[in-house]
Design a protein around this nucleic acid. Structure first.
Lengths: 184, 184
DNA sequence: GCCTCCATGTAATTGGTTACATGATTCT
DNA sequence: AGAATCATGTAACCAATTACATGGAGGC
């Protein structure tokens, strides 16, 4: 249940509405966690009922701005230091790699080249973000650390995908009837 | 809905029971996708009803061994080449990095050191797997490609976590009252 | 007046985890 | 005889996505 902690963490930076939070998920935060407005609004109501956030303003169109309470800050810190992060084990792109041998060699290599292109694109986007002026706030400094993780991650997987594609082209894996390779 | 494709892909290697498949998820495949038996058994029943797999044997204790059908192989190949893999966006460990500024500097550095230790452990485990005899089958060769991705991934994130911890210790981020850093 | 964006919510469905439930076989 | 492991299933619950639904404010 990390959604609530993501919301608390974001509200710790500055008071925001559900609409603002939804946009935040669509932007930077979306690289590590996603949420739709349909999940955010009910969760905000629960956090408010539990006293972890409070509504500070009512704007036009029924806009509700929330800020984190002291109890909310305690809770987000407890989450960060007192629990181990769950490691997501749902990497569909790598699940497919286990089954590449089911494809003819050229299609397997094509798949890996497409993955390389994906990582290349993502890396370029991250490098652009990194062009932004150096961090002015503590929050921006944390953001910069996360961005650097993304950059290294994408670089590693880009070079892996290129290597793997070349590997498959050189020592073709792929179903040509049998399952056992000619040369062990 | 990748669970069904994971099951089809595994059954393409050799016929297995729900129990065998559950164990496979607990082992190698578990690094990229997880599933419990309570999800596997109903899904196998659906795949059988749809003609993508068929039961080939009834063993002791009601053990049911399934094999993939031609239609099942077509489906798993369509999935691999005809659809784009969904990129999971639930990286709780990196979500927390965005909020490191909420912790006192030393606790933030501690968090990053613990992440480094995690990546170190995982990397060592992967390197041990890589000691195994070279791939004999096409499936094992694909598995080796996936393993190499894991190794490069863990290496990159290990070195990132070490760098970030040192960075936080050198230019402390963390809440000491205000939000704006002393030195921009 | 019309379009876009702002803004909030609920309902239905799917995918996944945890808990419940049962029993046979094999090993010691 | 007892423990460990093999083996299958269902039910209840939770998290998340997609679809449904409404309306105000601001710009042109």
């Amino acid at each position: 249940m990390s959604l609530r902690h993501a919301l608390l963490g974001m509200l710790a930076e500055r008071p925001m509405s559900g609409y603002d939070l939804t946009k935040s998920f669509d932007r930077s935060l979306g690289h590590v966690w996603t949420a739709r407005h349909s999940q955010i609004y009910p969760e905000l109501a629960r956090l408010r009922d539990e006293g972890l956030i409070r509504q500070v303003e009512e704007g036009p169109r029924g806009r509700k701005t929330y800020e984190v309470t002291d109890a909310g800050l305690v809770e987000v810190r407890r989450w960060m230091t007192g629990t181990e992060p769950e490691r997501s084990k749902r990497e569909e792109a790598f699940l497919r790699v286990f089954f590449l041998w089911l494809l003819p060699p050229q299609e397997a290599a094509d798949y890996l080249r497409r993955q390389a292109a994906y990582h290349q694109d993502t890396l370029e986007r991250y490098l652009e973000y990194a062009q932004a002026p150096p961090p002015g706030t503590d929050a921006e400094l944390s953001y910069r650390l996360a961005l650097e993780a993304g950059i290294r991650h994408e670089k590693a997987l880009l070079s892996w995908a290129q290597w793997a594609a070349a590997e498959v082209e050189a020592r073709p894996t792929g179903s040509r009837g049998g399952r056992r390779r000619k040369s062990a």
